[in-house]
């Protein structure tokens, strides 16, 4: 499997934010997206995830192979940690809750209501979700926010294991994960001229 993005242009609120994005990612490789705030990393990832249509260009990616993790973890406070994971595992029909809990050291917290977790613990739970989806392509938006150094290490290990298993990952992040990853600075793709959704009217 390979992720190929050709001449992709993406828009936020009708306004083009990136143009001519091209990259190619083979099995076992990761791509780290960099760029200042508001450069369009989130928009690019949401477009890859299929949540918004591209303005132009092509993405060769089987939607059935992709899992997306956003800023918000989608954690339900009244469910326990394990129930939260169990829901996603059932939805994706992958039974790997135990392994996922272990990978992010959530085992001792499994029966706690997720609402009682700290911000970092919640984030770990959100990332553990990736392991119960069984998907080959990870599309991750700022996965390390509110993680401490130790938890970042857990996350990096999980990504390395995923890549070693033939997976792919596209990650927007500002910190060094210690991964052997290609780096793409999205600021390169800033549109040369302003294009809005109201172009017809000019």
């Amino acid at each position: 499997m390979e992720l190929i993005v050709e001449d992709l242009s993406v828009a936020r609120g009708g306004m083009a934010v990136l143009e001519g994005v091209c990259f190619r990612l083979a099995c076992g490789h990761a791509l780290v997206l960099r760029g200042p705030n508001g450069a369009g990393k989130t928009t690019l990832l949401r477009t890859l995830a299929g949540l918004q249509p591209p303005r132009g260009g092509r993405i060769s990616l089987d939607r059935e192979a992709m899992v997306y993790a956003a800023h918000a973890d989608g954690i339900k406070a009244v469910l326990t940690v394990e129930e939260n994971l169990r829901f996603w595992a059932d939805l994706y029909r992958v039974d790997a809750v135990g392994a996922a809990l272990e990978a992010f050291a959530l085992g001792p917290l499994a029966d706690r209501p997720a609402g009682a977790l700290s911000a970092g613990q919640k984030r770990r739970l959100g990332l553990a979700r990736l392991l119960v989806t069984g998907r080959r392509v990870w599309v991750l938006d700022e996965p390390t926010v509110s993680l401490d150094a130790e938890a970042v290490g857990m996350f990096a290990r999980a990504v390395r294991a995923h890549l070693a298993g033939g997976g792919l990952a596209v990650i927007a992040t500002h910190i060094e994960l210690g991964l052997e990853a290609e780096v793409l600075d999205v600021a390169r793709f800033r549109p040369r001229r302003v294009v809005t959704g109201d172009e017809d009217f000019l």
């Binding site: 949540l51 993790a69 989608g74 029909r93």
Partner: peptide, 16 residues
């Protein structure tokens, strides 16, 4: 509620 905590985005990208 699902929109607020981000679950809606995740459900929309799930196999369902």
């Amino acid at each position: 509620l699902d929109r607020e905590d981000g679950s809606l985005d995740l459900i929309a990208t799930a196999p369902l």
